[in-house]
Amino acid sequence: MKAAEDQSQFKKAVQEARQFKKKKWTPSQKKEALWGLLFVSPFIIGFFGFMFLPMLFSFVGSFTNYNITSRMDFIGLTNFRRMFTQDELFTTSLYNTAYYVAFNVPLTAIGSVFLAVLLNRKIRGIRVFRTIFYLPAVLSGVAVYVLWMQLLSPSSGLINTILSWVGISGPSWLFDPQWTKPALILMRLWSVGGAMLLYLATLQNVPKQLYESAEVDGAGFSRQFFHITLPMITPIIFYDVVTSTIGAFQIFQEAYVMTEGGTGGPANSLLFYNLHMWNQAFVAYNMGYAMAMSMILFIIVLSLTFVNLKLAPRWVHY
Protein backbone atom coordinates (compact mmCIF):
# COMPACT_ATOMS: atom_id res chain seq x y z
CA MET A 1 0.00 0.00 0.00
CA LYS A 2 2.68 2.42 1.11
CA ALA A 3 4.94 1.39 -1.75
CA ALA A 4 2.23 2.13 -4.28
CA GLU A 5 1.71 5.55 -2.75
CA ASP A 6 5.42 6.27 -2.90
CA GLN A 7 5.52 5.16 -6.48
CA SER A 8 2.67 7.41 -7.56
CA GLN A 9 4.31 10.32 -5.76
CA PHE A 10 7.54 9.60 -7.53
CA LYS A 11 5.78 9.48 -10.90
CA LYS A 12 4.14 12.78 -10.18
CA ALA A 13 7.44 14.37 -9.32
CA VAL A 14 9.05 13.07 -12.51
CA GLN A 15 6.17 14.45 -14.56
CA GLU A 16 6.46 17.82 -12.92
CA ALA A 17 10.16 17.90 -13.62
CA ARG A 18 9.58 17.05 -17.28
CA GLN A 19 7.02 19.78 -17.59
CA PHE A 20 9.41 22.23 -16.01
CA LYS A 21 12.02 21.27 -18.55
CA LYS A 22 9.67 21.62 -21.49
CA LYS A 23 8.16 24.85 -20.28
CA LYS A 24 9.03 27.78 -22.52
CA TRP A 25 10.67 30.64 -20.71
CA THR A 26 9.30 34.09 -21.33
CA PRO A 27 11.90 36.72 -22.29
CA SER A 28 11.60 38.43 -18.94
CA GLN A 29 12.15 35.17 -17.12
CA LYS A 30 15.18 34.46 -19.25
CA LYS A 31 16.52 37.89 -18.50
CA GLU A 32 15.96 37.40 -14.80
CA ALA A 33 17.72 34.05 -14.85
CA LEU A 34 20.65 35.61 -16.68
CA TRP A 35 20.93 38.40 -14.17
CA GLY A 36 20.72 35.87 -11.40
CA LEU A 37 23.55 33.86 -12.89
CA LEU A 38 25.58 37.00 -13.36
CA PHE A 39 25.23 37.87 -9.71
CA VAL A 40 26.30 34.45 -8.51
CA SER A 41 29.06 34.17 -11.11
CA PRO A 42 31.88 35.31 -8.80
CA PHE A 43 31.08 32.38 -6.58
CA ILE A 44 30.65 29.97 -9.44
CA ILE A 45 33.91 31.01 -11.07
CA GLY A 46 35.73 30.96 -7.75
CA PHE A 47 34.25 27.61 -6.88
CA PHE A 48 35.25 26.04 -10.15
CA GLY A 49 38.66 27.66 -10.38
CA PHE A 50 39.83 27.32 -6.81
CA MET A 51 37.88 24.39 -5.46
CA PHE A 52 36.35 22.07 -7.98
CA LEU A 53 39.24 21.94 -10.44
CA PRO A 54 41.93 21.52 -7.75
CA MET A 55 39.77 18.79 -6.24
CA LEU A 56 39.46 17.08 -9.56
CA PHE A 57 43.19 17.42 -10.02
CA SER A 58 43.75 15.93 -6.56
CA PHE A 59 41.50 13.05 -7.46
CA VAL A 60 43.37 12.33 -10.68
CA GLY A 61 46.72 12.92 -8.98
CA SER A 62 45.94 10.40 -6.28
CA PHE A 63 46.43 7.62 -8.82
CA THR A 64 49.85 8.91 -9.87
CA ASN A 65 53.34 9.32 -8.46
CA TYR A 66 53.11 13.11 -8.97
CA ASN A 67 56.00 14.97 -7.35
CA ILE A 68 55.02 18.53 -8.33
CA THR A 69 57.87 19.19 -10.72
CA SER A 70 59.04 16.24 -12.74
CA ARG A 71 56.81 13.22 -12.87
CA MET A 72 53.19 12.23 -12.99
CA ASP A 73 52.80 8.62 -14.06
CA PHE A 74 49.68 6.62 -13.55
CA ILE A 75 50.35 4.02 -10.86
CA GLY A 76 46.84 2.78 -10.19
CA LEU A 77 45.94 2.09 -6.60
CA THR A 78 49.52 1.87 -5.36
CA ASN A 79 49.20 4.97 -3.21
CA PHE A 80 46.11 3.62 -1.49
CA ARG A 81 47.62 0.19 -1.01
CA ARG A 82 50.71 1.71 0.51
CA MET A 83 48.61 3.84 2.82
CA PHE A 84 46.73 0.93 4.32
CA THR A 85 49.38 -1.74 4.30
CA GLN A 86 52.80 -0.14 4.58
CA ASP A 87 52.74 3.37 5.93
CA GLU A 88 53.00 3.09 9.72
CA LEU A 89 52.62 6.80 10.16
CA PHE A 90 49.34 6.83 8.27
CA THR A 91 47.75 4.72 11.00
CA THR A 92 49.37 6.80 13.72
CA SER A 93 48.20 10.04 12.20
CA LEU A 94 44.68 8.74 11.65
CA TYR A 95 44.51 7.57 15.24
CA ASN A 96 45.80 10.89 16.56
CA THR A 97 43.27 12.81 14.51
CA ALA A 98 40.36 10.57 15.47
CA TYR A 99 41.33 10.92 19.14
CA TYR A 100 41.39 14.67 18.79
CA VAL A 101 38.05 14.83 16.97
CA ALA A 102 36.40 12.47 19.46
CA PHE A 103 37.24 14.72 22.39
CA ASN A 104 37.41 18.12 20.82
CA VAL A 105 33.99 18.16 19.16
CA PRO A 106 31.79 17.17 22.13
CA LEU A 107 33.88 19.17 24.60
CA THR A 108 33.73 22.39 22.63
CA ALA A 109 30.00 21.91 21.98
CA ILE A 110 29.26 21.33 25.67
CA GLY A 111 31.61 24.12 26.66
CA SER A 112 30.06 26.68 24.39
CA VAL A 113 26.45 25.77 25.28
CA PHE A 114 27.37 25.99 28.94
CA LEU A 115 29.00 29.35 28.47
CA ALA A 116 26.12 30.65 26.37
CA VAL A 117 23.59 29.69 29.05
CA LEU A 118 25.69 31.43 31.69
CA LEU A 119 25.99 34.55 29.58
CA ASN A 120 22.29 34.63 28.76
CA ARG A 121 21.36 36.08 32.14
CA LYS A 122 20.24 39.57 32.79
CA ILE A 123 22.82 40.80 35.21
CA ARG A 124 24.88 43.98 35.42
CA GLY A 125 27.88 44.13 33.12
CA ILE A 126 26.83 41.08 31.09
CA ARG A 127 28.07 42.75 27.92
CA VAL A 128 31.55 43.02 29.39
CA PHE A 129 31.54 39.33 30.27
CA ARG A 130 30.33 38.41 26.82
CA THR A 131 33.10 40.44 25.26
CA ILE A 132 35.70 38.89 27.52
CA PHE A 133 34.61 35.36 26.69
CA TYR A 134 34.39 36.09 22.99
CA LEU A 135 37.79 37.77 22.81
CA PRO A 136 39.93 34.59 22.56
CA ALA A 137 37.97 33.59 19.44
CA VAL A 138 39.29 36.72 17.76
CA LEU A 139 42.88 36.02 18.72
CA SER A 140 44.34 33.06 17.00
CA GLY A 141 47.34 31.79 15.19
CA VAL A 142 50.93 31.34 16.12
CA ALA A 143 51.05 33.95 18.90
CA VAL A 144 48.32 32.15 20.82
CA TYR A 145 50.05 28.80 20.47
CA VAL A 146 53.30 30.22 21.72
CA LEU A 147 51.46 31.73 24.66
CA TRP A 148 49.92 28.34 25.41
CA MET A 149 53.28 26.65 25.21
CA GLN A 150 54.32 28.89 28.07
CA LEU A 151 51.10 28.28 30.01
CA LEU A 152 51.66 24.55 29.61
CA SER A 153 55.29 24.61 30.68
CA PRO A 154 55.78 21.74 33.18
CA SER A 155 57.26 23.51 36.20
CA SER A 156 56.75 27.23 35.80
CA GLY A 157 53.68 27.28 33.55
CA LEU A 158 50.54 28.87 34.94
CA ILE A 159 48.43 25.72 34.58
CA ASN A 160 50.73 23.50 36.60
CA THR A 161 51.29 26.27 39.12
CA ILE A 162 47.56 26.49 39.74
CA LEU A 163 47.31 22.70 39.91
CA SER A 164 50.08 22.69 42.49
CA TRP A 165 48.04 25.01 44.75
CA VAL A 166 45.49 22.25 45.14
CA GLY A 167 48.14 19.63 45.64
CA ILE A 168 48.23 18.16 42.14
CA SER A 169 51.59 17.78 40.51
CA GLY A 170 50.75 18.53 36.91
CA PRO A 171 51.93 16.45 33.96
CA SER A 172 54.66 17.48 31.53
CA TRP A 173 51.98 18.33 28.96
CA LEU A 174 53.68 18.90 25.62
CA PHE A 175 56.69 16.78 26.57
CA ASP A 176 54.80 13.65 27.53
CA PRO A 177 53.15 11.73 24.66
CA GLN A 178 50.34 10.71 27.03
CA TRP A 179 49.47 14.34 27.61
CA THR A 180 50.20 16.13 24.36
CA LYS A 181 46.77 15.57 22.81
CA PRO A 182 44.83 16.39 26.00
CA ALA A 183 46.95 19.55 26.22
CA LEU A 184 45.95 20.52 22.70
CA ILE A 185 42.27 19.75 23.35
CA LEU A 186 42.41 21.86 26.49
CA MET A 187 43.99 24.66 24.52
CA ARG A 188 41.30 24.56 21.86
CA LEU A 189 38.65 25.01 24.55
CA TRP A 190 39.85 28.52 25.04
CA SER A 191 38.31 29.61 21.77
CA VAL A 192 34.78 28.33 22.39
CA GLY A 193 33.69 31.97 22.23
CA GLY A 194 32.85 31.79 18.54
CA ALA A 195 30.30 29.00 18.90
CA MET A 196 29.12 30.54 22.15
CA LEU A 197 28.00 33.62 20.26
CA LEU A 198 25.96 31.45 17.92
CA TYR A 199 24.26 29.70 20.82
CA LEU A 200 23.66 32.96 22.63
CA ALA A 201 21.78 34.37 19.67
CA THR A 202 19.66 31.22 19.45
CA LEU A 203 18.97 31.18 23.15
CA GLN A 204 17.55 34.65 22.92
CA ASN A 205 15.14 33.51 20.27
CA VAL A 206 13.59 30.81 22.44
CA PRO A 207 10.03 32.04 23.13
CA LYS A 208 9.65 33.36 26.68
CA GLN A 209 6.16 31.88 27.01
CA LEU A 210 7.60 28.39 27.10
CA TYR A 211 9.61 29.18 30.20
CA GLU A 212 6.71 31.05 31.77
CA SER A 213 4.33 28.16 31.38
CA ALA A 214 6.98 25.70 32.54
CA GLU A 215 7.49 27.81 35.62
CA VAL A 216 3.74 27.85 36.29
CA ASP A 217 3.79 24.07 36.06
CA GLY A 218 6.58 24.04 38.63
CA ALA A 219 9.56 23.04 36.47
CA GLY A 220 12.94 23.93 37.98
CA PHE A 221 15.99 25.23 36.19
CA SER A 222 17.39 21.88 35.12
CA ARG A 223 14.04 20.60 33.80
CA GLN A 224 13.55 23.84 31.91
CA PHE A 225 17.05 23.47 30.48
CA PHE A 226 16.68 19.86 29.37
CA HIS A 227 13.09 20.11 28.16
CA ILE A 228 12.92 23.56 26.65
CA THR A 229 16.32 25.14 26.09
CA LEU A 230 18.17 22.13 24.77
CA PRO A 231 15.48 20.93 22.31
CA MET A 232 14.99 24.47 21.05
CA ILE A 233 18.67 24.92 20.21
CA THR A 234 19.28 21.48 18.68
CA PRO A 235 19.38 22.84 15.11
CA ILE A 236 22.32 25.04 16.07
CA ILE A 237 23.99 22.25 18.02
CA PHE A 238 23.65 20.12 14.92
CA TYR A 239 25.15 22.82 12.73
CA ASP A 240 27.96 23.37 15.20
CA VAL A 241 28.76 19.66 15.52
CA VAL A 242 28.88 19.15 11.76
CA THR A 243 31.12 22.12 11.07
CA SER A 244 33.40 21.57 14.04
CA THR A 245 33.84 17.89 13.15
CA ILE A 246 35.04 18.93 9.74
CA GLY A 247 37.21 21.62 11.27
CA ALA A 248 38.69 19.22 13.81
CA PHE A 249 39.75 16.79 11.10
CA GLN A 250 41.72 19.61 9.55
CA ILE A 251 43.85 20.31 12.60
CA PHE A 252 47.30 21.31 11.39
CA GLN A 253 48.57 24.70 12.51
CA GLU A 254 48.61 23.93 16.23
CA ALA A 255 50.64 20.79 15.76
CA TYR A 256 52.91 22.40 13.20
CA VAL A 257 53.80 25.27 15.49
CA MET A 258 53.95 23.33 18.74
CA THR A 259 56.17 20.56 17.43
CA GLU A 260 58.76 22.82 15.89
CA GLY A 261 58.24 22.54 12.19
CA GLY A 262 55.95 19.57 11.96
CA THR A 263 58.11 16.86 13.48
CA GLY A 264 55.07 15.32 15.16
CA GLY A 265 56.03 15.87 18.80
CA PRO A 266 57.22 13.26 21.31
CA ALA A 267 56.64 9.72 20.00
CA ASN A 268 54.71 11.20 17.06
CA SER A 269 51.81 11.86 19.42
CA LEU A 270 50.95 15.10 17.63
CA LEU A 271 51.40 13.82 14.12
CA PHE A 272 47.94 14.61 12.82
CA TYR A 273 46.55 13.52 9.50
CA ASN A 274 47.08 16.85 7.77
CA LEU A 275 50.57 17.19 9.20
CA HIS A 276 51.57 13.82 7.81
CA MET A 277 49.96 14.77 4.50
CA TRP A 278 51.84 18.06 4.45
CA ASN A 279 55.14 16.31 5.19
CA GLN A 280 54.49 13.87 2.38
CA ALA A 281 53.66 16.65 -0.05
CA PHE A 282 56.27 19.26 0.76
CA VAL A 283 59.08 17.46 2.56
CA ALA A 284 59.14 14.15 0.72
CA TYR A 285 57.65 15.58 -2.51
CA ASN A 286 55.24 12.62 -2.59
CA MET A 287 52.42 14.85 -3.82
CA GLY A 288 50.54 11.98 -5.44
CA TYR A 289 50.53 10.11 -2.18
CA ALA A 290 49.44 13.22 -0.30
CA MET A 291 46.60 13.66 -2.79
CA ALA A 292 45.52 10.09 -2.18
CA MET A 293 45.57 10.83 1.54
CA SER A 294 43.41 13.89 1.00
CA MET A 295 40.91 11.77 -0.93
CA ILE A 296 40.66 9.34 1.98
CA LEU A 297 40.16 12.25 4.37
CA PHE A 298 37.49 13.59 2.05
CA ILE A 299 35.68 10.26 2.10
CA ILE A 300 35.95 9.98 5.87
CA VAL A 301 34.61 13.47 6.46
CA LEU A 302 31.94 13.13 3.82
CA SER A 303 30.62 9.89 5.28
CA LEU A 304 30.68 11.27 8.81
CA THR A 305 28.74 14.29 7.63
CA PHE A 306 26.31 12.02 5.84
CA VAL A 307 25.80 9.93 8.97
CA ASN A 308 25.29 13.12 10.93
CA LEU A 309 22.63 14.32 8.51
CA LYS A 310 20.90 10.93 8.54
CA LEU A 311 20.87 10.81 12.32
CA ALA A 312 19.73 14.38 12.65
CA PRO A 313 15.93 13.80 12.46
CA ARG A 314 16.18 11.64 15.58
CA TRP A 315 17.38 14.40 17.84
CA VAL A 316 17.17 17.70 16.01
CA HIS A 317 13.92 19.59 16.53
CA TYR A 318 13.22 22.16 13.88
Binding site: M51, P54, M55, A290, T305, Y318
Partner: peptide, 27 residues
Protein backbone atom coordinates in the same frame (compact mmCIF):
# COMPACT_ATOMS: atom_id res chain seq x y z
CA UNK B 1 11.27 27.80 5.87
CA UNK B 2 13.66 28.01 8.79
CA UNK B 3 14.11 24.29 8.67
CA UNK B 4 14.94 24.21 4.98
CA UNK B 5 17.26 27.13 5.37
CA UNK B 6 19.11 25.58 8.25
CA UNK B 7 19.43 22.29 6.46
CA UNK B 8 20.66 23.96 3.32
CA UNK B 9 23.04 26.09 5.35
CA UNK B 10 24.48 23.08 7.12
CA UNK B 11 24.98 21.27 3.84
CA UNK B 12 26.60 24.25 2.21
CA UNK B 13 28.93 24.85 5.13
CA UNK B 14 29.83 21.18 5.30
CA UNK B 15 30.56 20.84 1.61
CA UNK B 16 32.54 24.04 1.35
CA UNK B 17 34.60 23.17 4.41
CA UNK B 18 35.43 19.75 3.03
CA UNK B 19 36.28 21.27 -0.31
CA UNK B 20 38.43 23.89 1.30
CA UNK B 21 40.34 21.16 3.10
CA UNK B 22 41.07 19.35 -0.09
CA UNK B 23 41.76 22.45 -2.09
CA UNK B 24 44.42 23.68 0.32
CA UNK B 25 47.35 21.90 -1.21
CA UNK B 26 46.48 23.19 -4.61
CA UNK B 27 45.57 26.78 -3.99
Amino acid sequence: KVRTLLKAGTWCAAVSLILAACGNGET
